[in-house]
Design a binder for these strands. Structure first.
Lengths: 230, 230
DNA sequence: CGACCAGTAATATGATCAAATTATCAACTG
DNA sequence: CAGTTGATAATTTGATCATATTACTGGTCG
């Protein structure tokens, strides 16, 4: 069977210069990081196509990328979902984070410039403000930004990519946990880490970060353990 | 302009049941892991299309996945290459591997069944044989299989994915290094690790693995440092 | 309770447009 | 006058889309 096909020229120039698949990737990444997508929620290609008004190919590529990073998961038969963490998964994440992040902070401290420390402090201030206001979404975003900025400072691209990728795995669950507990009594060892970095005490900064990581992840683990017992 | 388009029905049934993008991914993954692709080598989408005789979409998805895993890299303007490792990159890989892999071996030892230990021993035997014959390609493959099997045994999917992903980053460089040094005097702490696992001594097994990892990666680092000094 | 049938979503292709690299050529300088 | 550099043309490659095809899901009927 043959068919007449006419191709409409693309609108273009709207994105500016970034490829569509990159834009879609970043948008979906934010949705996942800041809990717009809940654990267990199915993700359909055509749904994203309609939502972001782009063709299937860029969406497809973004989803593959996110699957590779563990942010999404093949549900066996060509279905894609936001993964639900088990308690055991969280234990693995705790181990990985407490192994990698202190090392990044160590390096970041040794390389830090005054301007960078200033920027970090600003992010931390915005974070405190979000907690004050009870603005969960903003808390999640600033908290991530704080850590991501540290990773970038370390000048260790591979370790930074590893640490960054882990956020995609616990992002959705973190949202659920914080939504339940509220923004109060959230762990925040950031001040201690910042002070140590300002003083050039890399070891102390690394230790503070390790405690921050462990405290935060422990909360996720406890919440998950409660869920299971329901 | 309109055009007559006829869609030829796909051959199908040749792949069996695996989606094309998955097949392409695995094939490219092997090419990278076992050094068929050299560091710095450009990877073109259409080139892969011709090579594997598939459409662009599956190739595109496979490439995105591999980029996300660090096996390939965007070369700024929409060009993709096999990354070239710097000495600093190798330092990061050493840190990450020595942090994660002993933990996996620890867990693997605690969960190991006799059948699994048997399978490991078989892989190790094939590895020794490859060394004996000077069969580099087979050495690389069996060496990877040995570690990958250990990861699977640990029952820690996230840590296993992290460790596994690292192989894609140093695979091409490993090939270059081993190709230069030959298969002789390659580090092989596998026997020590296996013996410890058989005896249920998880700590000893983890230690042996850490040494194996460090020795292997140190060789990569040394070779890279020499390259730079040229 | 198992099998069929319809609906829906995913897979994969080729066409087309846009961009970047390569190749060509001409003008200008030493 | 030769070599190099600058711009421009041509080719290659990447990006995106609409569509055809296939597989899975869920509901219904025997």
């Amino acid at each position: 069977m043959a068919k007449i096909v006419s191709f409409t020229p693309r609108v273009e120039a709207s994105t500016g210069e970034l490829p569509a698949h990159e834009v879609v990737y970043r948008q979906m990444r934010e949705l996942i990081l800041f809990g717009e997508l809940a654990p267990g929620q199915p993700v359909t290609i055509q749904g994203i196509c309609d939502e972001l008004t782009v063709g299937m190919t860029p969406v497809r590529e973004a989803i593959r990328r996110l699957c590779a990073e563990g942010a999404l998961a093949f549900q066996g038969n060509r279905r894609v979902v936001v993964p639900e963490l088990t308690v055991e998964n969280v234990n693995e994440l705790i181990f990985a984070r407490q192994a990698i992040e202190p090392q990044l902070v160590l390096r970041a401290t040794e390389r830090a410039t005054d301007a960078e420390l200033e920027a970090l402090a600003e992010i931390d201030a915005a974070l405190d403000e979000a907690i004050e206001r009870g603005d969960l979404r903003n808390y999640l975003e600033q908290n991530y930004r704080f850590h991501a900025y540290l990773y970038a400072m370390a000048g260790a691209p591979i370790l930074a990519a590893l640490a960054d990728g882990l956020w995609l795995r616990f992002g959705p669950s973190l949202r659920v946990v914080c939504g339940r507990l509220g923004t109060r009594n959230l762990p925040d060892q950031h001040h201690e880490a910042l002070d140590a970095m300002r003083g050039g005490d890399a070891q102390a900064a690394a230790k503070a970060m390790r405690e921050d990581v462990i405290q935060g992840m422990e909360q996720v683990r406890r919440a998950l353990a409660e869920d299971v017992s329901n």
